[in-house]
Simulated scan of single mutants.
Amino acid sequence: MKRPTMADIARRAGVTKAAVSFALNGRPGVSDPTRRRILAIADELGWQPNSAARALSDGRAGAFGLVVDRPARMLGLEPFFMQLISGIQAELSADGTPLLFTVAEDQRAEIATYRSWWAQRRVDGVFLVDVQLEDARVPVLEELGMPTVVIGAPVGTGRLPAAWSDDAAAAGTALRHLAALGHRRVGRVCGPARLRHTEIRSAAVARLAPELGMECATVATDYSADEGAAAARTLLTRPDPPTAILFDSDLTAVSGLTAAQAMGLRVPQDVSVVGWGDSALCELVHPPLTALSRDVAAHGGRAARMLRAAAGGARVADLEDEAARLVLRGSTGPAPVAATAGAAAVPAAGGGAQGANAPGPGQRQTVAEL
């Protein structure tokens, strides 16, 4: 069945194509009864506006774009991006705006996609994710004048507005919790060092760990499950293995916990595990994972509202979302006695160590501020 056109509507209604155009676009030139009849026929025929023609007539594509520079195979396993995209799409679907999504093999290909989309009027704006320390995309998007919302910290993002939460504060929440449990040797499994949010978290850990009397060894990964498990094994086979490990994603945390158990270690009696990002994965393992948690889908929805406003010509300011809170489950507990012998107690901010009251498997406790 061929797609219905305005000519089909005009023939059915017994009017000119110009009258159909006036009616469908809400312009004067037709009577109210005629407008209602034309709209009813258009609905009956299942007519939809041609996005390419609309872009030529008013310069708007009626769609937004998202390009991700990560392997497609990993995106299907990464809860963060699935939650983010679901939040963006839920907001955009309210007015029928589609999200044009694709994967790029590198930053050069990503930039080429932006240039192509903008030249062909395929999108009215884009979301920028995974900001890098030296990010070539930022000046290109500024040069194009393409409405853009950065999902990440407003550092190195030029004039582009950002929707973000404080990763440094979240890192502090996790470290203080572990310090209150008596942990002094901590491992960290982070993402790629080139990413801005990795650098922010690393700087926060490097600054705070000495203040809490902690040593921290870091291993970088690509966020995959395989590398998360390998990083855990690397840390746990050191001459002075950590008594707790902070993972920068829930996927690597789950794989790291499993790797530790495969080595014969008990969680949390021998090693505590904390994940960054709280998804269903965290509650499906045993023991369930203590994790830094925030509503990523709601964050995506707020970013979508920002981009809609920017595409409409509004000046959009940075939006700081709530920092991640720590949800306590069974994967964290007091440091092994041998590891804490002779160590001075480091109380959590606000008083009171968390160790003795750490929840067991299946229990859930939220720490808004430690």
Rank of each mutant, 00 (worst) to 15 (best):
E142F: 11
E134S: 09
V140A: 07
Q120S: 13
R137I: 04
S165P: 08
V126N: 01
Q120R: 14
R115E: 13
A112T: 09
A163D: 08
Q120M: 13
I151E: 02
L160P: 00
A153K: 03
T157F: 04
E143S: 14
Y114T: 10
A163H: 02
G158H: 09
D124G: 12
A136E: 15
V131Q: 07
A162R: 00
W164E: 03
V131C: 11
G156P: 00
L141D: 02
E134N: 11
T148C: 09
D135N: 06
V126L: 03
A163G: 15
P161S: 05
A136M: 10
D167R: 13
P147M: 08
V150C: 07
A153M: 05
L160C: 04
V123A: 04
D130A: 08
R159A: 15
A162D: 04
P154L: 07
W117S: 02
D130M: 09
I111F: 04
V150T: 05
V149E: 03
V138E: 04
A112Y: 09
V126W: 00
F127H: 02
R137M: 05
P161C: 05
P139Y: 12
E134Q: 13
D167P: 04
G152F: 01
P147V: 05
L160V: 04
V155D: 08
V155C: 07
Y114E: 05
V129Y: 03
R121G: 02
G152K: 03
I151H: 03
P139V: 15
G152Y: 01
L141F: 13
R159Y: 10
V126A: 07
G158K: 08
G156K: 06
L128D: 03
G158W: 09
G145W: 08
M146I: 13
R115Y: 12
P139A: 07
A119K: 15
T113A: 15
L141S: 02
R122H: 10
S165R: 14
D124S: 12
W118K: 04
V150R: 03
G156I: 12
D167E: 13
L128M: 11
Q132R: 14
D166N: 14
V149I: 10
V150N: 06
P154E: 05
E134F: 14
D166S: 13
L133K: 11
R115G: 00
V150P: 00
R122P: 02
R159F: 10
P161N: 05
G158V: 13
G158C: 12
P147T: 02
G152M: 02
E143G: 09
M146S: 00
P139D: 07
V150W: 01
V150I: 09
G156D: 01
S116R: 15
V150Y: 01
V155W: 15
L133Y: 12
W117Y: 09
I111C: 14
R137S: 10
G158R: 06
S165M: 13
M146F: 13
A136H: 13
Q132P: 02
T157G: 05
L128Q: 06
L160G: 00
D166Q: 09
D167H: 14
I111Q: 13
T113P: 12
A119C: 07
L144M: 10
